[in-house]
Amino acid sequence: MSREVLLFHHALGLTPGVLSFADDLRAAGHTVHTPDLLGGKTFDSVIEAVSHAHDIGMEEITALGVAAAADLPHDVVYAGFSLGVLPAQKLAQLRPGAGGALLLHSCLPLGTFGPWPEGVPAQVHAMDEDPFFVDDGDLAAAEELVATVPGAELHLYPGKGHLFADPSRGEYDPDAAALLLRRVLAFLS
């Protein structure tokens, strides 16, 4: 089954690694849209990237992501890497007919956008010792999601890397990233 996916990048921008992940999904027969929420900017430093994202504003970044879905069908699967989870989760929870949510390296509390819509599947992927995921409340949010939403899945991988599925990052973990991709492809099928 071929799906349409709207994939949002992390705070470092639309990196070659995010594009490579999108290409992996395309190679499996899916249509993948990769909007650029940072106007073409990419960063090597997480500190610079997060500072830039705060300068733009999280609400503005989320609004840009929501706008990217305007001309797409309603049964899109919304996916996001870290910062990209903001618009992905908002769309999955609030846009009628969502086909699913793939929340990579981040998860927002359910109350952020209201209750989870019935029938919208979700997967969350992160490393079990990622300080951004564990210490910033994302793990607790993901556990709540799995406990509340029938069929929702939380996949934890051993390690501390935050953007472990982005092959353009030093924290890339090829084994964990390959397993994540297999699980994502199974979710999409």
Rank of each mutant, 00 (worst) to 15 (best):
L185E: 05
K41E: 14
V5F: 00
S45T: 10
L163D: 09
G65Y: 01
V50S: 10
L154Q: 10
A152M: 04
P16C: 08
F132D: 13
A122F: 04
A142Q: 00
A67S: 13
P121N: 02
A68D: 01
S189Q: 13
G114V: 09
A178T: 14
T15F: 05
R3V: 05
C107K: 03
R26A: 11
D166F: 05
L179F: 01
G100F: 05
G80S: 13
G17R: 08
H162V: 10
D24W: 00
E129M: 12
D135Q: 15
L12H: 10
L83G: 06
I56E: 07
S20G: 13
T15C: 12
H9Q: 12
G100A: 05
T31F: 00
R182S: 15
A28C: 11
T31L: 11
F132R: 12
T112Y: 00
A27D: 13
D128P: 00
I61E: 06
V32S: 09
V76H: 02
V134L: 02
G161V: 04
T42I: 11
L25A: 01
Q93R: 05
A79W: 08
L102I: 15
L108N: 06
A165F: 14
G84W: 01
R183V: 01
Y78M: 03
T31S: 15
V50T: 11
Q123H: 09
L94D: 11
A53G: 12
G17D: 07
A101N: 03
F8Y: 15
V184M: 06
R26L: 09
R3K: 15
A186E: 13
D166R: 11
G40M: 04
D173K: 01
P96R: 06
L64M: 06
F21T: 05
F132Q: 15
L25Y: 08
L185P: 06
L139M: 06
L188V: 06
H33K: 03
L156P: 06
R183P: 01
V134H: 05
A11M: 07
P115F: 00
